[in-house]
Design a protein around this nucleic acid. Sequence first.
DNA 1: ATAACACTTAAGTAGATGCTTAAGTGTTCA
DNA 2: TGAACACTTAAGCATCTACTTAAGTGTTAT
Lengths: 110, 110
Amino acid sequence: MFRQDAILDLAFQALADPSRRAMVDRLVQGPATVSELAKPLAMSLPGVMQHLAVLEASGLVISEKVGRTRTCKIDPKVLSQAEHWIAERRALWERRLDRLGQFLDETKDD
Amino acid sequence: MFRQDAILDLAFQALADPSRRAMVDRLVQGPATVSELAKPLAMSLPGVMQHLAVLEASGLVISEKVGRTRTCKIDPKVLSQAEHWIAERRALWERRLDRLGQFLDETKDD
DNA sequence: ATAACACTTAAGTAGATGCTTAAGTGTTCA
DNA sequence: TGAACACTTAAGCATCTACTTAAGTGTTAT
């Protein structure tokens, strides 16, 4: 549906804010309501709602309202994709260093 | 020197832009000059310089000027820290699911 | 010396972001 | 029924971001 690029834009943007990372931190321990997410944050409830909207738009978090409470939880798919993007680049970078070291070894007897 | 939180703010913020990710993508293949980084991007050179400044401020990239050319390369430390932050959260989330499954197994014979 | 090159600085701008307060909506409990 | 609760919407505002163009600076090749 979405380009990988757009997914990563939203995911990294969502993770770039410490309040949102704190919310993710809380949610990896298990589902929580909006109020529970808000409690440790020095911020108004609408502020928290806006952060939640960013997390949901990125696909990192999903929520469902039952009665008057909204329960939020992690969806790990986008988290995986972000992790994978970084891991892949680190691997490429390391692979290049290995090749470079090998080349230097092979040519050191000049 | 810097709080882990501040490092991650800058790292994820830096990775949230597709032009900057393209620059990282190029740099994992090996060092490049500013012009080389700029070539595939549909953007003025000062625009590229500003993206480079963001990447350097985050610690993802380091650069050095020799003569009139500036050569940029990846510094993998911050990339590792960002990857680690995500990996840790995913692990916590999965561990919780495991405990949950175990609990359900243990109590299914009611 | 001089022209081309590879950035670099400065200044301006449209739109996004991260809050706020005030005023809702719908749900649940006494 | 009515108060308390758990959000939700709307509007406003100060920054911050991602560009742009125009005008530099210092380096290198001719």
